[in-house]
């Protein structure tokens, strides 16, 4: 790597246009939103920058705090669900025979290449009352009934007359499922990369010393692949936190997350300063999560083999 002084001409030719683009069309807009967050709404589209903290004060009212908290909670829940479901899958791929691996990885990634909006939409057909999950459950229900009848236990009397379809859509459960479905591969890939790298002899040593498979997982595999989990957690948690069309499409009236509130301020309520303040609070939470990760990763460096 050269010092920039060695060739200032090339230095500037290379970085001028990208830097300009980044500053003009990214940093400036962000700064603008930051400035707006200290403004007051004065009319339909007019905003006066008064340096007020009112927007932040309002954002920290219980109503919005609750939504923030709910967003964090939902994103956290979805992240944990991804982690729990992601480990076995990552494990299976990492331990699969070499010639299977590319196909398994590909199979994992293809859905991930598809537009997230379309995937969310696709869930509707599966989860609605007359959707496939309910159909499948109904089939099992009928089978169970048939079996019970056969055993002479009186058919539909025992477990209820008819199958009542579950309400799987337009509630918080659906939002959570949607987030998990949307970001699941983000979790598996870093986990896989870490498990794949893990030296098998650590696991063998643990088994050799008498630990069982679960014990080996929790005392050897997990501590040594924690970095992958951490990356996965971050790259699932951050977009999940800002999601707004998943609650919009799958959620009910009580499934509003912070993304929806921000969207409403900009798109319909036209209260930009307040939306700006919320948006910056969301960014601060993101940075907090990133900092936390850096901290935890730093402390665990000793384990990184």
């Amino acid at each position: 790597m050269d010092s920039w002084r060695k060739n200032p001409l090339v230095f500037w030719v290379l970085n001028l246009s990208p830097s300009a683009w980044l500053i003009l069309f990214f940093i400036v807009p962000l700064t603008l939103v930051w400035v707006l967050s200290f403004g007051e709404k004065r009319g339909l589209l007019e905003v006066a920058i008064t340096g007020t903290f009112d927007n932040y004060a309002r954002a920290l009212q219980p109503l919005y705090l609750e939504i923030f908290w709910k967003s964090i909670w939902m994103a956290g829940l979805a992240t944990i669900a991804c982690l729990i479901a992601g480990y076995p899958v990552a494990f299976a791929i990492a331990f699969a025979p070499d010639r299977w691996k590319p196909f398994l990885l590909l199979a994992l990634m293809v859905p991930f290449w598809i537009n997230i909006l379309i995937r969310t939409y696709a869930l509707i057909a599966v989860f609605r009352t007359r959707g496939y999950v309910n159909f499948t459950l109904e089939w099992f229900w009928d089978q169970a009934n048939g079996l019970l009848t056969l055993l002479g236990l009186g058919g539909y009397q025992l477990i209820g007359a008819r199958y009542e379809p579950l309400e799987l859509l337009y509630n918080n459960f659906a939002v959570n499922m949607g987030i998990v479905y949307a970001f699941f591969p983000f979790m598996v890939l870093p986990l896989y990369a870490n498990i794949e790298k893990l030296d098998r002899s650590y696991m063998e040593a643990s088994l050799d010393l008498g630990a069982g498979h679960w014990r080996t997982f929790f005392s050897v595999v997990f501590p040594l692949t924690w970095h992958g989990a951490l990356s996965g957690i971050i790259i699932v948690f951050i977009p999940a936190l800002g999601a707004f069309f998943i609650p919009d499409l799958l959620g009910g009236t009580d499934s509003q997350l912070i993304g929806n509130v921000i969207e409403r301020q900009f798109k319909s309520a036209n209260d930009w300063p307040f939306g700006a303040a919320l948006s910056f609070l969301l960014m601060y939470i993101t940075f907090g999560a990133l900092a936390l990760r850096a901290l935890v990763a730093g402390r665990n460096r000793g384990l990184d083999v």
């Binding site: 990214f26 807009p29 962000l30 977009p239 936190l241 993304g259 969207e263 900009f266 700006a276």
Partner: peptide
């Protein structure tokens, strides 16, 4: 790296405001 890490909605509203 910022455009990659910040939530999309933050960048969305920033562009809109800009």
């Amino acid at each position: 790296a910022l455009p990659i890490v910040i939530p999309e909605i933050c960048m969305g509203v920033a562009m809109m405001a800009f």
